[in-house]
């Protein structure tokens, strides 16, 4: 796509030391880090349909090259991830140039993203999409026992591949609670119900930016995205916070707050 190529060149000329995006080499989509305008990779840069948590690479890149400025291609979800990661001291937004891509109508509908476009759009047209609530509604229509049974059935398919965690743009812990033998018994498949999945859901609360990569990655088709989406609803409802919004907003689980905040919370 010539547009992206031009932009990459522009950014490299305009102060970015490298541009991180995806390339499509004969159908194989891979991340590409382009450091100069003569790079052969430039020919293959592609917005494409594929998605990849580039933020995970950026964390390492920024740590390794603290003096360099990076430009990165972002969709709406990528931008939300980078914003949230910056609050968690993993990404330095000051050393980052985001080049926004709006997802196409088909992409947006297929994905079910709450905001399929970034703040500044360099490529594509902004379209709105409605995030699916079918699974949440279905679960909420059930009584306690049925709910538990429903989830148990879903989670019983889990083969503990950790795909959901490994693809997650928001996961960066060096030691993962999912591998803590006190919480999740090693060598048991499916993993302990419900601790394995609720631990991940809790860790995602106030952090998940609803990209849906986890569900895409799950070989067992567990409706993970709905679970985490519900956690964000809870977070917004109870603590008035949704991950990936503005840089200024702070996650209430990450600061103490005032007595007034708590009194308000308790009165609800």
């Amino acid at each position: 796509m010539s547009d992206l190529k031009t932009i990459v060149k522009e950014k490299l000329a305009g102060g970015a030391d490298a541009f991180l995006c995806l390339k499509n080499e004969e159908g194989t989509v891979l991340p590409a880090l382009i450091t100069d305008a003569d790079s052969p990779d430039l020919e293959f840069v592609d917005v494409g349909e594929s998605r990849y948590p580039l933020g995970r690479i950026l964390i390492d890149l920024q740590r390794e090259y603290p003096d360099k400025r990076f430009a990165v291609l972002v969709r709406g979800c990528d931008e939300r991830a980078l914003i949230e990661l910056s609050k968690l001291e993993q990404i330095d937004l000051d050393r980052l140039v985001m080049v926004g891509v709006a997802c196409s109508t088909e992409e947006a509908e297929a994905c079910g993203c709450p905001r399929p476009y970034p703040g500044d759009i360099a490529l594509g047209e902004k379209v709105e999409a409605a995030p699916g609530r079918e699974v949440i509604d279905e679960v909420e229509s059930l009584g306690d026992a049925e709910r538990l049974g429903w989830w148990k059935e879903q989670f019983s398919r889990c083969i503990k591949c950790y795909g959901c965690r490994n693809i997650c743009p928001m996961c960066f812990c060096k030691d993962c609670a999912l591998e803590n033998p006190h919480l999740v018994e090693p060598g048991v498949i499916p993993p302990d119900f419900p601790s394995f999945h609720i631990i991940r859901a809790l860790d995602m609360t106030g952090r998940c930016i609803d990209c849906g990569l986890c569900e895409e990655a799950c070989p067992a088709d567990i409706p993970l995205r709905s679970l985490y989406r519900k956690m964000q609803d809870i977070m917004e409802d109870k603590l008035e916070y949704r991950a990936g919004g503005s840089v200024e907003e702070k996650n209430p689980l990450s600061f103490l707050g005032t007595e007034h905040d708590i009194e308000k919370l308790e009165q609800e």
Binding site: L88, Q90, L253, S254, L256
Partner: peptide, 24 residues
């Protein structure tokens, strides 16, 4: 094991947690 997310810094009522900028 620390990834330097900095949450613990803000949760200390006694300002006892600091951030090692070098090691993050």
């Amino acid at each position: 094991k620390c990834s330097g997310c900095g949450i613990c810094l803000q949760l200390c009522p006694f300002e006892a947690v600091t951030y090692d900028e070098e090691k993050k």
